[in-house]
């Protein structure tokens, strides 16, 4: 163990360490403690400028009740749930399947070639309006290169995997305008569904990274044994792989829950009305309304932060396992 375990040192060092530990914790969390304290203060305290002294009177719940009753906070919370839960289910399900495909099969580079080809062809038709001859020529070129690549030894599954990972790291802004237009043209602008579909698509990148590595590390004998028993590939996935990857599913679910719950950017870009806004955007909107009522802003912030915090404490082991994937060899 590194550094040297403290109990191998003297008494003085031990006492110092233990005191320093708790003091540093308080300092580390000071901004949060301040907010928690503010959320139980009276309005009189706030207006009189008694922000940091002991509250003259502790309002254990009144500010929280007020935040809920006088504003659409409950609606925002509900929206957050309606956005987060389907996203978690959708992206984890898609990624389990895709991760399985990328971990267990050799996929020829043809898939990637065709995917890229189709994307570019669609782009050419919808945006540039190319002539039919040019389009045919392009399609022919794509098909020809796919044909040439059919026996190539390039690891197509690895290339696809790299594509998913890369997509996961790109800046959101490069997607912003087209995704907004797409959502609008699908009639899903300013709706919960619009956000959910986009989140599922984007989170799939991270989830595939996770699931593929997890499935790749499973003992191959188990899979081969199932095949010899006569299971087809779909039974193999359902009855063998899924039960084995349950820890990964749990870890991913808590992580994605937290990511999506905390999303702010896409909530700004894809929705705008109270009926679809999640809590992150909602709380910022309320800030304008509450101006200097810091006790309400604080209470609202704490409510907004609570679900991911509860999730974290309930599923701590899974959460950290997911987050530190790859931190050890």
């Amino acid at each position: 163990m590194f550094p040297t375990p403290i109990h191998k040192r003297g008494t003085a060092a031990n006492i110092t360490y233990r005191v320093a530990l708790w003091v540093s914790l308080v300092v580390w969390l000071l901004p949060l403690i301040a907010v928690a304290l503010t959320s139980v203060r009276t309005l009189e305290d706030i207006t009189r400028g008694n922000y940091w002294g002991w509250p003259t009177e502790i309002l254990w719940y009144q500010n929280y009740v007020e935040a809920f009753t006088r504003t659409p906070l409950a609606r925002y919370m509900l929206n957050s749930v309606l956005i987060t839960v389907p996203t978690v289910i959708g992206s984890v399900a898609l990624a389990a399947m895709a991760g399985f495909a990328l971990a267990q099969y050799r996929i020829s580079p043809v898939v990637l070639t065709l995917t890229v080809g189709v994307v570019i062809a669609v782009f050419m038709v919808t945006n540039i309006g190319v002539s039919a001859t040019l389009l045919l020529g392009f399609v022919a070129a794509v098909v020809a290169s796919a044909w040439l690549l059919r026996r190539s030894r390039w690891p197509g599954e690895l290339l696809l995997f790299a594509m998913f990972i890369a997509g996961n790291f790109i800046p959101f802004q490069i997607l912003m305008i087209p995704v907004r237009e797409l959502t609008r043209s699908l009639g899903m602008y300013d709706s919960i569904e619009g956000l959910v579909v986009f989140h599922i698509a984007f989170q799939t990148g991270f989830c595939v990274l996770f699931m593929r590595n997890f499935i790749k590390a499973l003992p191959y004998e188990v899979i081969e044994a199932a095949r010899i028993e006569g299971a087809n590939e779909f039974q193999l996935f359902w009855y063998v792989i899924l039960p084995l990857v349950r820890p990964a599913l749990a870890a991913l679910s808590v992580l994605i829950f937290t990511f999506i719950w905390n999303d702010y950017f896409w909530a700004l870009v894809l929705v705008q009305s109270d009926s679809a806004q999640p809590i992150t955007a909602g709380i910022q909107a309320l800030r304008g309304q509450w101006v200097a009522s810091w006790q309400l802003i604080s209470a609202g912030s704490i409510i907004a932060a609570l679900p991911p915090v509860i999730m974290f404490f309930a599923m701590q082991r899974h959460f950290i396992a997911g987050l530190t994937l790859g931190a050890v060899k």
């Binding site: 898609l94 990624a95 399947m97 895709a98 399985f100 495909a101 990328l102 267990q104 099969y105 996929i107 898939v111 995917t115 890229v116 189709v118 994307v119 570019i120 669609v122 782009f123 945006n127 696809l160 594509m163 998913f164 997509g167 790109i170 490069i174 997607l175 305008i177 087209p178 995704v179 797409l182 579909v197 986009f198 599922i200 698509a201 984007f202 799939t204 990148g205 595939v208 590939e233 779909f234 996935f237």
Partner: peptide
């Protein structure tokens, strides 16, 4: 099988991530 498993994620990813980059 790999196509069946891969296509939902791939299609969604292509539509919402890859294509918008080009656009």
């Amino acid at each position: 099988a790999p196509w069946v498993f891969l296509s939902p994620a791939l299609v969604l990813f292509a539509v919402y991530v890859i294509y918008p980059i080009v656009q």
